Amino acid sequence: MAKPQYEGYCENTPTKLVREKFGDINVYDQNIKALLTKATGFIAAYDFTLNPYRGCQYGCSYCYAAAFSPNTKMRQDWGKWVIFKENAAEILEKELESWYKKNPKQSPKIYMSSVTDPYQPIESKYQLTRRLLGIMLDFFPTPTLVIQTRSPIITRDIDYLQRFQRLRINMSIPTGSESVRRDFEPQSPSIKARINAVKKIKQSIDPFKGFIPKISITITPLLPTLSDEEVIFIEKLRIADRVVIQDFHPSHNRSLVASTRQEAEEIKRKYAWWYDDENINYMKFKKKLISILEGVEIKEGKEGFSYE
């Protein structure tokens, strides 16, 4: 089957036209044949990954997911396009029906999402992630679900989230310094907004009326936090039951391989005071986490992304 040709990113006649402009983002729609993808590698502990969208508006400089763009031009323009999986809800329903027929007493373990943010800004309009959550809730036992996001939009769905018996929310906060965040991920929500989103989730769920989700703060990749803000940042992480740290992915130019983008490597030069002794600073930060966050689970890398 011929690969789709996206308007604005192809030399031939496009087969996928821009559905709309969302800010300065090109939005395309696409029908899919499968939504749940067998989980492998870093998140092999799950049965499936689930990505409602392809591409991500946040366009973080370091994001490894750019490697999985449809073509080289779109990889270079990461953060400027999103593909909306138009029939995702119908496909998910069929896939879960098939799973539960084969495994009537066992819920699937789903990681949402591995190469996009399910709560990027466009979700506020399309509400695709919300529809997918609603479909999952129609099955019993409900899937074991981990949601990876950096977006406060997730609080919109507290009414659904509290109905999952086994849910972990991973809120990505790679740095405690706004100036560093603006350098590495200028299109993403503020640190304060993310912390407040986690607080709202925890404060809004009555344990007598819903299930309290597990909460992780994922500091992945670990970016610098300015020295005068480090302890203040770490103190705020008490709201989580787990904190995960991880360094950068290796950098290379091969497609379809998770990799730190060149944009991030260039920004890192601004923070030579940290990256010239990256391993030492990583260990110092880890020790501070352990000493300050007594009672909070501190995990590294792959181990930190499990549900348990």
Rank of each mutant, 00 (worst) to 15 (best):
C10M: 06
K16C: 14
G23N: 15
T37F: 06
G41E: 11
Y46W: 04
T49F: 01
P52K: 03
G55Q: 03
Y62Q: 06
A66H: 14
N71S: 13
K73A: 14
R75N: 11
G79P: 06
W81K: 06
I83C: 08
K94M: 13
L96M: 12
L96P: 00
Y100L: 11
S113A: 15
V115H: 03
I135H: 05
M136K: 02
F140D: 06
V146Q: 04
I158Q: 05
L161F: 08
Q162M: 15
T175I: 08
R182K: 15
E185N: 10
P189Y: 07
S190R: 13
R194F: 09
N196P: 00
V198G: 00
K199M: 10
I201F: 06
Q203K: 14
P207Q: 10
I212C: 07
I212R: 12
P213F: 04
K214D: 10
I215E: 05
S216P: 02
I219D: 00
P221W: 07
L223K: 01
D241Y: 03
D241L: 03
I245L: 15
H252Y: 12
A258G: 12
T260P: 05
I267D: 02
A272L: 08
K287G: 02
E297R: 10
E297N: 09
G301N: 10
G304W: 07
